[in-house]
């Protein structure tokens, strides 16, 4: 009778090797990402103050969170900042890409210049723009020294304008990245389509508006998702550029969370704000991932 030869130990290992290799990383992600999400969610329902305390008190931290003016300012700021940052970056990036697409000289050099800000950390961007926008040593002083005595550019010290100063610095940093995304998409458009459109009698800007840009919809989606999550995570830029000030006029949720958790001994409220942020990100990412993973049929 035929018997199946025994599977050697080494063969079994070889067969399981992929799983073995992936396992540590998988375990680490499971513990450090999802584990801590659950932990934070739990903490947000406890009466933790300076140190974690595991006594559950229901949704009271959330109630306290939404009663705080600082939090509503932070949420409002996030909407202003996020909306302006994403749209201005996309529009500026798209314009730059279209302009760079005109077969100009030294394109590689110019492209690198526009893309470079993305390689700088937000802390440095923030510091540099803090100096530029500082009324007594930045742009305002320079222009006044040139003779325009009444020139004012005190955005960072103005309660109502500080958030727009953040938008300006963030757009400066991210629009080059958006440009690179759009440029590669522009380059991948079939040249025959452009030829066909110009034979059809379309002017160059109509070709862009009617044919090329609509065909780049997936890239617009990606750019918006990447930029939105940058906006929601923004923390270091605020710390470096305005410190959340004046007062708390330019606080963003991430700064709020840091402030509550590590400075004001309100760990539960900090955890609650973190959970609200997670929900916000999920609200953006889940529909996107869903539409992406469902397949590319309707692109």
């Amino acid at each position: 009778m035929l018997t199946r030869p025994p599977v050697k130990f080494i063969d079994r290992i070889a067969r399981a090797l992929p799983q073995i290799v992936v396992a540590p990383g998988f375990a680490a992600i499971l513990y450090f990402v999802y584990g801590f999400i659950i932990w934070t969610g739990y903490i947000s329902l406890t009466k933790s103050k300076m140190l974690p305390n595991y006594t559950l008190i229901g949704t009271r931290p959330y109630e306290r969170l939404f009663q705080m003016d600082r939090w509503s300012v932070a949420i409002e700021n996030l909407f202003i900042f996020g909306f302006l940052f994403v749209f201005v970056s996309v529009i500026v990036g798209c314009l730059l890409a279209v302009l760079l697409d005109q077969k100009i000289r030294a394109e590689g050099f110019i492209r690198t210049i526009y893309l470079y800000p993305m390689a700088i950390s937000f802390i440095i961007t923030g510091t540099a723009w803090k100096w530029i926008m500082n009324p007594s040593l930045g742009l305002e002083k320079v222009i006044r020294d040139w003779g325009w005595e009444s020139f004012r550019f005190g955005w960072t010290v103005d309660n109502n304008l500080a958030i727009y100063a953040l938008v300006m610095a963030a757009v400066w940093q991210a629009s080059g990245f958006a440009m690179a995304l759009f440029l590669s998409a522009l380059r991948s458009v079939d040249q025959d389509i452009i030829k066909a459109a110009s034979l059809d009698g379309a002017s160059p800007w109509r070709i862009y508006l009617r044919i090329i840009l609509p065909s780049m919809r997936p890239v617009f989606m990606s750019a918006m998702v990447i930029l939105s999550h940058l906006a929601i995570k923004s923390f270091d830029l605020v710390v470096a550029l305005t410190g959340g000030g004046p007062g708390y006029a330019s606080t963003l949720p991430a700064n709020f969370m840091y402030e509550m958790t590590f400075r004001r001994n309100e760990i539960a409220v900090g955890a609650a704000s973190a959970m609200v942020m997670l929900a916000t990100v999920a609200a953006i990412m889940v529909p996107y991932l869903y539409s992406e993973l469902r397949g590319k049929k309707h692109v």
């Binding site: 079939d190 025959d192 030829k195 065909s215």
Partner: peptide, 9 residues
């Protein structure tokens, strides 16, 4: 055109 060059959208 050889690639047809249809407007995809």
């Amino acid at each position: 055109f050889q690639s047809y060059a249809l407007y995809p959208t």
